[in-house]
Design a protein around this nucleic acid. Structure first.
Ligand code: FES
Ligand code: FES
Lengths: 152, 152
DNA sequence: GGAGTTCCCTATTGAATAAGTAGGCATTTA
DNA sequence: TAAATGCCTACTTATTCAATAGGGAACTCC
């Protein structure tokens, strides 16, 4: 199960990306519409800003807007911000690889081999699908994503 | 990341399944071979027994053996014992489905839709691949598994 | 230029989970 | 009957999750 925090982040991102071009959404507005605790949401939006996904304006008519286009922000990227590495085992993460102390040989490790298969399958989806795709409801795999965007 | 507990469970299961037919392995033996804390391992093996996967004999020449054949025990099944539902969202779990309170419409939920894709992909692997497969190192998808075995 | 609105930042809390430790009882066999 | 094994429960310690709390900084608009 993913954390509430991550789920809130997706809700917010989808809302901001769906807003009319250039129009900012306030944290209060999002908080109200989706009944997300306001102060909690503020932290989340701030994280998304620090990650270079959102931009913000302060003051009276402030709020948040997308910094990068929605179809360049993958689900995998967002998830990693809030959940850390998505890999089921440290030895399978590319971003933050760590050797498994207790496994003798990585090459012959059955656990690694099988979970590798599973992780590959889900990563294929998470790193290819973007916020933009989700909003447009484009069927998976059709436009052939630019590349598989990252790893973790 | 999966828990240590789950990883230990796989290590132990693979060892027990790999042992010569009918020959029991003791918890101490497994604990020593893979440097798993002994008392912790005992709890794990007990869970596997309660789940109907292992059988045990007590006393002097006791130990653990497989109760069911290794190629009927999927990675998904074992993982669920120790980690609970594998679904990334409560609304995607078949075993322990729970409605998402904060989502208006399940059918139109983009988050659910996208994570559903990802979950399908990984479940396909985890519920199809068995301890037996892993030991035999059979390539994935070749023998066409009996059926996709469960969901959760 | 000040009031009001918004984002920005840090600290704290309470509950749950993870990862073991600890101690002892029950059963079997040599 | 002693030694080895599994069985069961309780406890501990650290970490993470999900917020709450309280204010500071910047911006806009009268
Ligand atoms: S090497 Fe990572 S699980 Fe074995
Ligand atoms: S319905 Fe479950 S995430 Fe929206």
């Amino acid at each position: 199960m993913i954390s509430n925090k991550a789920k809130y982040a997706f809700r917010a991102l989808l809302a901001i990306a769906a807003a009319p071009e250039g129009e900012a959404m306030t944290s209060s507005e999002i908080s109200r519409r989706y009944t997300i605790p306001h102060k909690f949401l503020e932290q989340i939006l701030l994280d998304l800003k620090k990650a270079g996904i959102l931009d913000s304006r302060r003051g009276k008519s402030g709020g948040y807007v997308m910094l990068r286009p929605a179809d360049t922000v993958s689900f995998g990227e967002v998830l990693r911000i809030f959940e850390g590495p998505l890999a089921p085992l440290p030895c399978l993460s590319r971003q933050s690889y760590r050797r498994c102390e207790d496994c003798v040989s990585e090459a012959n490790c059955e656990i690694r081999r099988e979970f590798g298969r599973s992780y590959d399958a889900s990563r294929q989806v998470l790193d290819a699908r973007t916020i933009g795709d989700a909003l447009a409801n484009t069927p998976f795999g059709t436009p052939l994503p630019l590349e598989v965007r990252r790893a973790g």
